[in-house]
Design a protein around this nucleic acid. Sequence first.
DNA 1: CCAACATATGAATATATGTTCATATGTTGA
DNA 2: TCAACATATGAACATATATTCATATGTTGG
Lengths: 118, 118
Amino acid sequence: MSECCVHPEKTEEIKGQLPDSCQLFDLAELFKMFGDSTRIKIISVLTHRELCVGDIAAALDMGQSAISHQLRLLRQSGLVRCKRQGKTMLYALADSHVQDIYRIGWEHITESEGDGNA
Amino acid sequence: MSECCVHPEKTEEIKGQLPDSCQLFDLAELFKMFGDSTRIKIISVLTHRELCVGDIAAALDMGQSAISHQLRLLRQSGLVRCKRQGKTMLYALADSHVQDIYRIGWEHITESEGDGNA
DNA sequence: CCAACATATGAATATATGTTCATATGTTGA
DNA sequence: TCAACATATGAACATATATTCATATGTTGG
C-alpha cells in the first residue's frame, strides 16, 4: 500500500485551491461535448453557417437519427441553438465561446509538437 | 425514410470545407482528455504547480492507481509531461495551450448564460 | 543485495455512450 | 383533414471507458 509521497500540508493547500467539484463536473461535461468525432464534425460545419439536420447528416455521411441525437446533446449543453424554418430545423452555434474553444483546440493539434518552453 | 431536406450543392460545399477526418478525430481525442471529471481535476491542480502522483491522488481523494492510469492517458495525449525526482514522479502541464483550453472552458461555464449575440 | 517506498500496468468489472431501428411529433400544401 | 416530409425520440445493442485489485517496475538508503 503506502500512502505514496503525500505531503499533508501541500495536499491541504491544493484541496483549498481546487475549484468547486460541481463546476469541475460541468467543465468536464462541456469538453465532453467536443470530445466525440461526430459532435466535433457537427461543430466544425456549424462554424461556417447554420444548417438543417438533413444537410448535416448528408455532409457527414451519417444517419439522420444519429445526428439528431447528437444535436440534442449539444442543445442540452447549450452549445448550439436551433430555430424552426418551415419543416426544417436550422441549427447554429450558440455563442462565440464555442468557436473559441474549437479554434484553440485546432491550433493545438495543428502545431502538433511541444513548444519546448521549460 | 426520406432524404430529409438535403440540398445537394450546399452539402457538397460543406463537405469541401470540412477539415481532414483524421485531424477532426485528433481534435475530438484532445477534448476527450478534458472531458472527464478526474482528468479535469488533475489538469486543474496542475495549473497551479507541478505535483507528484501521490499528492494528486490525496488532493483528489482517489486511489493512486486511478490517478496513474489517467496520467498515462494525459501523457500519451501530450497534455502533461513528467520527470523523475528520486522515487517520485513530478507531473506538470505540457504547454500553455492546455491552460488556455482549460481557462476558456472555465470562462464559458462561469458566465453560464448565453451572451445573446445574434 | 535487500527492504521500503513511489509509481506503472494488466485484467476484470461496472458503467457510460454512440448508433441503429422503429416510430412519434410536428409542419406544409392540397 | 390527409399525405408527404423533416426531425425527434425510445429501446436495444455494441463498444468504449473508468476504477479497482493485484502485482510489476524502478529508486533509495542501509
